[in-house]
Structure formats: structure tokens, C-alpha cells
């Protein structure tokens, strides 16, 4: 990995110092961990009482309290979880768009999530999404030590995803620029996850095409060429198409309970403004 990319890995790590990854809304499965969940769990540390809700474990009903008040009350214990983050990085060539910091932002954002996860007691695994979805070699090391992260994939994105750890937090970083039903990817992506986060990372040019120019557009993946004059109407149609595309992904994410967020690479690297993720309770400000 070249020095420039490593710079952005470090930049992502530094940005993660101000954030912590939010606790998963669903308790992760597997071995008991060291992280306390927001949910009523099964650890021995008593936390609180609350009214019984259907579905609560009957073993946690405080029968003493029932005897005193005729109210079903359950004891809440702080849950210990062992959270895990899967960061899925789209390695398509479009993520390394010429003349934009899109690849840098992708690297930095992946490092950000991984670093924030590590700081929050998560384990993490970076995945490279291309023709197949494979773990980044050496990805268990700190992000600043990652190697082999490149954006050279052309063609279809794999929709057959590996079997990830149940109740893990999953982050997909991609520009999502491919045709097809979003659910084909989002459904397996969010299946049995604690939190699914789809981050659409765009360059500013992806979101705001230049107007008043005649351009020879070259598809970064297929090298297909299209010449046209971009006037206000053409740009408007482009923006409308992008909005429709984003809406499709948003709907798909909503159906599977995932979070859909769009970030602009230039703004990300400049301001690291992650309010959208904070508001979606994906991140917590330290």
C-alpha cells in the first residue's frame, strides 16, 4: 500500500478518536463478552427493574415484587456482549474515481470504522467486496497496518456473501453504482446482523455533475464512452436519477432494518462530519 493510502488510514484512525461505535441494537450472539449491552441481559450485574413486556424471559420476573404489587416486574441485568464489526469495502474501480479523493475517503472511512470499533471493544474484520467478498489479508491488525487494499475490480459485485458472525455490526462502504435490485445485496448483508450500515460514499462529481460543458464521459469500470452536452436540464435529470437510485437503496435498507447514509468524499476528508451516522446511532461522540 502506498504512502498516500497509509496517510488516509492514519487519518481515519485519528478521526475515530472522537467517536465510539454505538452498541448494537440486537445483542450479538456467541460467547459472553466484555461489553455491556443496552438490552436486559443475563449477566449477574443487576441494573434496574421495569414492567414486564411480552417476550421477556420469565426467569427474570421478580416474583417478590409481584407479590408486593401484583405487577409483573422483571429484573434487568446488564448484558455482557462481545460485539464484532465487519467492514465491507467495495473495491470497484469506480471507488477510485480519477480526479477525486473517493478512494482516499473510502480507505479513511474503513479505517475509521475499524478503529472506532477497536476503541469500542469490538473485534473487526475488513472485507473486500469485488467479484467475491473476501477478508482483507492481515485485516485483524490495526488499520494503519493494513495491506493490499486496492480498487481494481471491474464488473459485477458479488451478491453471495460469506457467513458472517451473527449479530455483528456490518458496514458496507460503496458508491452503490450498479444496476440491479438492492435487496439482492442488502438482504444477505443485513441477515442476522446486529446493525447493518450502508454508507454510500460519493465523490462530489457523483452528486453534483458539472453544468454547461460538453463532456466525453468515460465509465471508470467499463471504459464506455458517452459524449453529451451537460446543460441544466441534463444535470437535473442526472440528479433525479441519482435520487431515485438512492431511494431504492434506502427502501431496501429500511426493509431489512439497515441504516442508509450517504457521504461525500471531499467533505468527509475535510470536516469528518459524521452527523448522519451519529443521528442513526451508529456512532457516539466521545
Amino acid at each position: 500500500m502506498n504512502q498516500g493510502a497509509r496517510t488516509y488510514l492514519n487519518q481515519g484512525e485519528q478521526a475515530a478518536e472522537r467517536y465510539a461505535l454505538g452498541t448494537p441494537r440486537l445483542a450479538p450472539a456467541g460467547l459472553a463478552g466484555a461489553t455491556l449491552s443496552q438490552r436486559a441481559g443475563s449477566s449477574l450485574e443487576f441494573k434496574d427493574h421495569r414492567a414486564y413486556e411480552p417476550g421477556d424471559d420469565l426467569r427474570h420476573i421478580d416474583w417478590s415484587a409481584f407479590a408486593r404489587s401484583d405487577q409483573l416486574t422483571v429484573k434487568l441485568y446488564r448484558e455482557e456482549v462481545t460485539p464484532h464489526l465487519d467492514v465491507v469495502i467495495d473495491t470497484s474501480r469506480s471507488m477510485n474515481l480519477e480526479g477525486t479523493p473517493k478512494a482516499d475517503a473510502t480507505i479513511a472511512l474503513a479505517a475509521f470504522f475499524a478503529s472506532a470499533a477497536l476503541r469500542s471493544g469490538y473485534t473487526q474484520t475488513p472485507w473486500l467486496l469485488g467479484e467475491r467478498c473476501e477478508p482483507l489479508p492481515g485485516g485483524n491488525r490495526p488499520p494503519s497496518q493494513w495491506e493490499g487494499l486496492s480498487f481494481e475490480h471491474r464488473g459485477e459485485i458479488a451478491t453471495r456473501l460469506p457467513t458472517w458472525r451473527a449479530r455483528s455490526t456490518r458496514v458496507l462502504i460503496s458508491d452503490l453504482f450498479w444496476l440491479g435490485e438492492p435487496l439482492r445485496l442488502v438482504r444477505p448483508f443485513a441477515d442476522r446482523s446486529a446493525t447493518g450500515i450502508v454508507v454510500q460514499l460519493l465523490a462530489r462529481e457523483d452528486a453534483e455533475p458539472p453544468e454547461g460543458q460538453s463532456v466525453r464521459l468515460v465509465d471508470s469500470e467499463t471504459d464506455e464512452v458517452k459524449e453529451l452536452h451537460v446543460d441544466a436540464a441534463t444535470a437535473r435529470r442526472y440528479r433525479e436519477a441519482l435520487a431515485r437510485h438512492q431511494q431504492h437503496w434506502h427502501e431496501a435498507c429500511r426493509q431489512v432494518g439497515a441504516v442508509f447514509v450517504t457521504l461525500i468524499a471531499e467533505e468527509l476528508l475535510t470536516h469528518w462530519n459524521l452527523d448522519a451516522l451519529v443521528m442513526a446511532e451508529v456512532l457516539q461522540v466521545r
Binding site: E98, D206, S214, R216, E227, L228, H229, A241
Partner: peptide, 29 residues
């Protein structure tokens, strides 16, 4: 003002006008 400038884009999928596809892109292009 209008000479074509080469510009790489992430994808051409959003540049395809629906009308163009229906009416035949050759004439329009």
C-alpha cells in the same frame, strides 16, 4: 465553450436518459 472534455465518471448508469433509450439513442447522439 462546448468542446468535449474527457471526464471519468463512476458509472454511466445515471447518465442514461430514459427517453433516449426509448426513442433510439443514435439520432440523439
Amino acid at each position: 465553450r462546448n468542446r468535449f472534455k474527457r471526464r471519468s465518471v463512476s458509472s454511466l448508469m445515471l447518465w442514461r436518459d430514459a427517453r433516449e433509450a426509448r426513442e433510439g439513442g443514435v439520432r440523439l447522439r
